Amino acid sequence: MSRVAKHRKACPGVRNDAELEYWRGVWQSARTLSVDIAGDNWCNYWHEHFDWESRGTRSRLEHRKHLRPLMHAFARVQSQLHQQSKPHQVFVSIYPNDPGSDALYVHTPNPHSDYPAEFGGMQFVTWLPPLLIGVVSLDRYRVGVTRYEGDHRFTILPRQDGAAVRHAATL
């Protein structure tokens, strides 16, 4: 048995190759995500999940680890769409009790649903809940809470201080 294999057996908290490969894939998706709304392209609540296997249900730490690439992709897509003149909304939904449903959304005028998206019943926080501390900045984003059926979700919206959040004032 190799020295590395002995160490992994003796230290079960150390990630194995499959775990490392999983995280490489998650981060690769976040770093390469691209959304094109130019020309006739549109998005009807197009979204991307980063925790397809619902690993975030294992622990709050595991959930937070998935939020980092999600927020990286959020910033990346905002930057991409900043270059486009089409009206758009970019936001993230985070479900504390259902991490596999966490997603980055892009919404534009389209033939299938109303634009802009409405976020009725949302209350914006002035402090971050523990799940989002160190992952989301209130200087850069607004965090709204929507309560439903005894549960809640967080919606993260860009602050309204730049062209990348064009039409966010209608939220």
Rank of each mutant, 00 (worst) to 15 (best):
L171M: 04
H66R: 02
D98G: 12
L81A: 00
Y141A: 07
L171K: 05
Q80R: 03
V4G: 08
A164W: 15
Y115I: 05
W52P: 09
A163K: 12
K9R: 15
Q80M: 03
A5P: 12
R15E: 14
M122N: 10
H66A: 02
W127R: 15
W27S: 03
S34P: 06
W46K: 01
G25R: 10
S34C: 11
V14P: 09
F124A: 09
V143K: 07
W27Y: 14
H47C: 04
L157M: 11
I133K: 15
T126G: 13
V106M: 01
Q160Y: 11
H49Y: 05
S85L: 11
F91P: 01
R64H: 00
L128K: 04
Y95C: 08
E62P: 02
K65T: 04
H88I: 03
H49L: 06
H167W: 12
Y22A: 02
C11P: 08
L171P: 04
G121H: 09
R76M: 05
H47W: 00
P99A: 09
F119H: 14
Q160V: 05
I94L: 07
R55M: 10
A169C: 07
W42T: 04
E48Q: 14
Q160R: 14
N41I: 03
D51L: 05
I156R: 01
H72G: 06
F74K: 08
E62W: 03
S137G: 04
T126C: 12
E48P: 02
T146V: 11
P111Q: 07
G13N: 15
R58L: 12
E48S: 09
W42N: 08
